[in-house]
Design a protein around this nucleic acid. Structure first.
Lengths: 200, 200, 200, 200
DNA sequence: GATGAATGAGAGTTCATTCAT
DNA sequence: TATGAATGAACTCTCATTCAT
C-alpha cells in the first residue's frame, strides 16, 4: 500500500549520491541541492532521511568506515600465517589507495571534520573507535604470531599497530600528493623491512 | 612615513592571529572578522596584506612548513650517527605532536584544502614539495648510513622515507584522536623495531 | 506544488520592482536589498530568478527594448502613408520622452553600461542590435516612400535612419535636461523641416 | 621658496590623469588609488585638490565641456557663410566622435551621473547649461542666416538647434555602438538633407 | 606640505533549512 | 508523502576617506 521504495533502500541511495558528491567537491563545497539532484529526489526528501547536512556527512562517514573494516576482515579471513596477514592488509591498503583515489579527499575531510567543532560532534569519537578496531585487529594478529613464535616476544604489538595504521594512512596521503609510480611496491618494501625487524 | 609598525612585523602579527583562529575553528568556520578582531585591526587591513582568505591560509601553510623543516634540520644538525638521527627526527615529531596539539586540525585542513579545488590552488604542489624535502632529508640519512655500513645495503631508502614520513603523519592524526598516554614511548618503540629491520 | 505564485508572474514582478529602483537610483546605487524590499520578497529570491545583479539589469534592459520596439511597430501598423509613418514614430518618441520621463536615467545607465566592461558583457551587442532594428524599420519606410515617389530618389535612407534614431535619442536626453515646455511641438517642427528636405 | 610645482599646473595634471582613468574604466570602476598612481602622486594629494571623488568627476566633466565649446567656437570662427558653419560644426562632431572614440564612455557616464542623484549634484544643471550654450550658438547661426535670407524665415531655429545637438549626440552614441564605416559621410549626408529642408 | 597605512560601513552573493501546498 | 519556492543570516571583499607621521 505504501510507496514501493522501502526506506532502507532509499536511504542507501541517498547515501551513495552523497558519497559521490562529497568526494568530488569536499564537504563545504557540496550543496544539498547537488546531492538531491544526483539522487534524483527533492531537497526536502534529504531532510526526511537525515537531520541536516552534518548528519548526512556523518552517515557517509560511518558507512565508509564499515566498508573498510569489512574489507580488512575479508582480506585476512582465509589466511593462517600472521606475517602473510600483515602483508595482505598492507596490500589491501595499497589497492584502496590506488583504485579508490577519488575518495582520498573525502577521508581528509573526515579527519578535518573530526578534528574540529569541539565537543559538539562525535566524529572524533567515531573515528577513534574505527581506528581502534583496526589496531585491535592488528594487535590480535601480532599477538597470535607471538604466541606461535613467528614474531619476537619483545615486540610491542600496540606500537606496531600504531605505526602500521598510522603509516598506511600517511602513505595514503603521501601517495595522493606525490603519485609515486610504484606505490604498491613501495609499501610492500616498507612493510617487509618492518617485518624483518619483528620476525624471529 | 609609515604610520606605526613596520610592514613585516604587521604581516607577522596578522599571520599569528590567523594561525590561532584557523587552528581553533578550521578554515571554513574561520571568518575574516574573527582574525581581524584577534589581531586587533580592521578587516580591511587583512586585505591589504593578503589578497584574500585563501591567500592568508596559504601563507599560514607555508610558514608552518618552513618552521617544521627548520626544526627537522636543527634536530639532526650536530648528530653524527645516522641511527641516532632517525631517532631524533622521530622524537621531534612526537614532541611536536604532543606540544603543538592544537595545530593538528590545521594540518588536517591543509591536507583537505590541498586535496580539493582542482588545479586552481597550488596547495597540493606546495604540500608535495614540502614532503618531498622531508623525504629527501631522510633518504640522505639512510644512504649515508648505508655507505658507512650502518644500514643494510639492500634497504630501500625511498620506501623507508615514505613509511617514516607517512607513518609520522599517521601517528600525528592517530595520537590526536586517541590521545595515548605514552605516545612518545610508543613512537620510539615503533621506530626501534623498524630500525632493527634495517640495521646490520 | 509551487508555493503561491507562478514563476513567470513572479519573475515579472521582480522585474517590475527592479525597473523602478534602477530608474530611481541608477544601476550602481541600486542595492539588491532595495529591489527585494520593493518587491516584498527576500533578497535570496532575486538570486533564484536572476543569476546576479548584472543579469537582472540585463533582463530589465532587454524587456525595455522589446516594449519600445513593439510600441514603434504598433504606432505605424495601420498607416499607409510613409511621411505620416515617420511623423507617428516621432510623435511616439516625444510621448514616451514626456510620459515615461522617469525612465530616461535608466536608458542612460544602459548606454553607460554598454560602453564599459570590455568584452565581458553583451550589452553593447544587444543595444546595437536593438538600434539596428529601429533603423531597419525606418530605412524600410524611406525606401517604400522612395519606390512610391514620396521621397526623393537620391535620399540616403541609411543616413536619415541614423539621424532620426540618433536624433530622437539625443532629444530624449536634451528634453530630460532642459525640460522644454513644448517638446512635442519642437520635435514635430524639427521633423517637418527634415521631411521638407527629403520629400519631393 | 614654496614648492616649485604651482597649484594650477598640479591640478591640471591630476585632472588629466583622472580623465584618462575615468574614460578607461567608467566612474564607478575607477578607484582613487588608480588615479593617484597614474598621476604619480599620493592618494592624500587628490583630496587636497578635490573634495572627493564626485567633485573630481565634476571637475573632469566641466573641463570637457569647456574643451568642446572652445572647439566649436574655433571651428566656425573664420567662416562667414552660415550654411557652411552648420556643416563645419557637424564635421567637427564627426571628427570628435571618430578620433576621440575612447571618451564616449566618459560622456555616457556624465549623462548617467547627471540624470541621477536628485537635487544633490549640479551635474544636470551644468550639463543643461553646456548644451544650452551649444544650442544658442546654433540658434545664432540660423538666425543670422535667416536675416541674410539664406535660411527660410519660417524655420524654427530652436527646433533645428535641438535636432542638431540632440542628433549629433545620438549619432555619437550610435556610432560608438555600430561603428559604421563612413560615419563622417553619413553625418554629412544627414545634415545636407536637413539643410535642404531649411535653406531657401 | 605630502604620504599611504588604516579604517569600517556596506555591497553582492550563497545555501542550509523550512514549510505551505 | 513529497516537493521546491522561499527565506535570511552570514560571509567575503571593496574602496572612499581620514589622519598620524
Amino acid at each position: 500500500m505504501a510507496k514501493k521504495v522501502d526506506k532502507e533502500q532509499r536511504q542507501a541511495e541517498l547515501l551513495e549520491s552523497a558519497v559521490a558528491v562529497f568526494a568530488e567537491r569536499g564537504y563545504q563545497a557540496t550543496t544539498m541541492d547537488e546531492i538531491a539532484e544526483r539522487a534524483g529526489v527533492s531537497k526536502g526528501m534529504l531532510y526526511i532521511y537525515f537531520k541536516n547536512k552534518e548528519a548526512l556527512f556523518g552517515a557517509v562517514f560511518r558507512w565508509f568506515g564499515q566498508q573498510i573494516g569489512e574489507l580488512m576482515v575479508d582480506a585476512i579471513g582465509d589466511i593462517e600465517d600472521e606475517v602473510e596477514q600483515i602483508r595482505r592488509i598492507t596490500t589491501l591498503w595499497a589497492e584502496v589507495a590506488i583504485q579508490q583515489r577519488e575518495f582520498v579527499p573525502l577521508f581528509l575531510d573526515f579527519w578535518a571534520a573530526a578534528s574540529l567543532r569541539g565537543m559538539r560532534n562525535d566524529y572524533a569519537e567515531d573515528l577513534a573507535t574505527m581506528y581502534d578496531e583496526y589496531r585491535t585487529l592488528i594487535i590480535g594478529i601480532i599477538e597470535r604470531g607471538q604466541a606461535k613464535g613467528t614474531f619476537r616476544a619483545e615486540t610491542d604489538a600496540r606500537a606496531i599497530a600504531y605505526l602500521l595504521v598510522g603509516g598506511m594512512d600517511g602513505i595514503f596521503i603521501q601517495s595522493w600528493l606525490a603519485q609515486p609510480e610504484h606505490l604498491d611496491q613501495l609499501m610492500q618494501n616498507a612493510i617487509e623491512m618492518l617485518l624483518q625487524g619483528i620476525t624471529t
